[in-house]
Each structure stands twice: as structure tokens, then as C-alpha cells.
């Protein structure tokens, strides 16, 4: 039964728009799926103690490279998105390689990567002639609205299936990493780098692989967000706030469990939406207020996150009975 459960849940999710396709809830679900994918991408490396605050930078690179290629050269996102992912992965390697070589870990790694996301934000803002600066950027729409070539679709159902597929793909990648030798190598590295290295783990290569993977996935999320919203601004897709948002949602859901970041995305986005609908403009700032308090409380009392703690409880109950 528990083997079948993911398949049943998956089939139910795929079938959802046939039963229920009210545009607003579907829009929220698409947004949740895209961010779930981004948070999962962050947790792919975050769970091994590689806490990066640079993912806001990768998200921005993904969104802007793809949109700029489309607007300036008419390059289809089918090529633009892989290029954006490559660019983000390249940037990640550029940072991660020296970090690993010179043993920049923990605090230092978080601060260096934070500098990276600050750089991406500043570069986007400074090159305002090309990127529109802090006013944001809009990919050119194709006449008629929908085009497979331009990766633009007007109906929410199509976007729902795309986002669902990408999210499922993200979960699969994380699950795959979980079952590979890489996981043992990275866990060993996070416990003790010297010991891992002595045991024959190629520390730098392993770190680079996971960082590039995580960055490329995050860039894909950024590009997808851009194609769906058709508007990006440096403050929403890059910078330290975007990075902290990823860390926050992942920690709340639980970074050590597969569905943790997804649950984190559901909670944070629903919270923001409920506040927005319930209180309108009076709610400005309240969602961050609640996030801030929750983040502090979770790290002090529930560092495993919601899903992680629940699973630990269930496991404990099973062992106890």
C-alpha cells in the first residue's frame, strides 16, 4: 500500500484540472509548485550542511538570462532555459571550486555566497539599460498569447501540468541523489571533511557536482517563474531576500525529508495569500513578520521542520508499539 501511495497521489494530481479548474486556486497551485521546485533545489545541497545564501543569484541568472535571450535575439526558451541553467551552474562552480579548495565552509560559505546574490542583484540593477533595472523586466509576448516555440501559454491548465512535471522531476532528482553513492560521500563530508577525504572521497568533486546541480535546478525554477508570470524584478528573483526566503521555507518544512520544502512552500505561500485576501493592503509586512517569528521558533524548537518532526514522531511511535 505505501508503495502505491505516491503513484495514486501523482495520478490524482495529474487529473486535478479535469475535475476542478477554477482559475484563481489553480494559479496559486502553479505558484506553489514552482516555488516548491525551487526550494527543493535549494535543499538538494542545503541538507548536506552546504547552506548557500547565493541561490537568489542563481534564480536571478535563470530568470534574466532566458528572458534577455528571448527579447534580444528571439532565442526560444527551449534553448534559452538550458543556456540559463548552464550559466547558473557555471557561476556556481566558479564560486564553489575555490570555496572547497580553500576550506570555506559553514559561516564563511554562507557569507561568501551571500555576496554572490548581492552581486547579481546589483549587476541587474546597474545594467538598467539592458535589464530594466529595479523597475523589472517583461518578456515579449507572442501575438495570440500561446506558443510552444515561445514557451508562453495563456491557459492555467497547461501551466499546471508543466509546473507539476517540473516539480515531480525535482523530487525525482532529490530522491535519486538520496539513493546514490553521492549521498554517502556528501554526508561523510558534512561530518568530517578530513576523514571523508582520507576514506577516498573526492571532496571537491562531490561538492562541485551537487552545487552545480542545485544551481542549475534553481535557475530552471527562475526561468519557469518568469515564463509563467511574464514579469520579473531584481527584488523578487535575486538578492539576499530571495535567498533567505528559500532557506526559510525549506527549514520550516524540513530540509532532511523529501517533501519538506514542498510543505514549506505550501505554508508560506498560503499564509501570504490568506493575509493578502483577508486584510488587503493592511497586511503588507505581516507575512514576513509571521515568517520571521516562525523561522526563529523552528530553529530553536523544531530544527527538523514540520514534516521532519512528524516523521520522527511516527517512527518513534512505530518503534514503541
Amino acid at each position: 500500500m505505501s508503495k502505491l501511495l505516491p503513484w495514486i497521489a501523482g495520478a490524482a494530481l495529474v487529473a486535478l484540472p479535469f475535475i476542478y479548474n477554477s482559475p484563481y486556486p489553480l494559479h496559486i497551485i502553479v505558484i506553489i509548485l514552482i516555488w516548491s521546485f525551487v526550494y527543493t533545489s535549494w535543499s538538494v545541497m542545503g541538507r548536506f550542511g552546504l547552506v548557500s545564501l547565493g541561490h537568489g543569484g542563481f534564480l536571478g541568472v535563470g530568470a534574466y538570462v532566458n528572458a534577455l535571450l528571448w527579447n534580444n535575439f528571439g532565442l526560444t526558451p527551449w534553448i534559452g532555459i538550458p543556456l540559463a541553467m548552464l550559466a547558473a551552474a557555471g557561476l556556481a562552480v566558479l564560486i564553489a571550486y575555490p570555496c572547497s579548495r580553500f576550506r570555506i565552509t559553514g559561516h564563511y560559505f554562507a557569507l561568501v555566497t551571500m555576496a554572490l546574490s548581492a552581486i547579481v542583484l546589483q549587476v541587474i540593477t546597474a545594467t538598467r539599460d539592458v535589464t530594466g533595472g529595479s523597475l523589472g523586466y517583461t518578456p515579449q509576448r507572442v501575438p495570440g498569447g500561446s506558443s510552444l516555440f515561445a514557451f508562453q501559454f495563456t491557459d492555467k491548465e497547461t501551466w499546471y501540468w508543466i509546473a507539476l512535471a517540473i516539480w515531480g522531476g525535482g523530487l525525482f532528482v532529490r530522491w535519486y541523489v538520496d539513493r546514490s553513492m553521492m549521498r554517502y560521500a556528501l554526508e561523510a563530508i558534512s561530518e568530517d571533511e578530513d576523514a571523508a577525504s582520507a576514506a577516498g572521497v573526492h571532496v571537491t568533486a562531490e561538492k562541485l557536482k551537487i552545487t552545480a546541480l542545485s544551481a542549475a535546478m534553481t535557475a530552471l525554477g527562475g526561468a519557469l517563474y518568469c515564463q509563467y508570470q511574464m514579469f520579473i524584478s531584481p527584488d523578487t528573483v535575486s538578492g539576499i531576500s530571495a535567498s533567505l526566503q528559500m532557506v526559510f521555507a525549506s527549514v520550516v518544512g524540513g530540509i532532511y525529508v523529501l517533501l519538506g520544502p514542498t510543505v514549506g512552500a505550501v505554508i508560506t505561500i498560503m499564509l501570504a495569500e490568506v493575509l493578502r485576501i483577508g486584510f488587503g493592503t493592511a497586511a503588507v509586512g505581516w507575512d514576513n513578520f509571521v515568517y520571521g517569528i516562525l523561522l526563529v521558533l523552528f530553529i530553536i524548537y523544531l530544527p527538523q521542520g514540520i514534516v521532519g518532526s512528524l516523521m520522527a514522531k511516527l517512527r518513534g511511535a512505530r518503534v514503541g508499539s
Binding site: 547552506v51 527549514v251 505581516w286 514576513n288 513578520f289 520571521g292
Partner: peptide
Amino acid sequence: PINQLLATGGVLALLQSTATI
């Protein structure tokens, strides 16, 4: 150490939004 860093990140969001509100 990274948990301490993230917790103060939570305080960052908290203070920022307190000021906004």
C-alpha cells in the same frame, strides 16, 4: 553555527516587517 546564523536571519525578516507595519 549555521542555525544561529539562520535564526538571526529570521530576526532580520521580523525587524524589517515590524518597521514596515
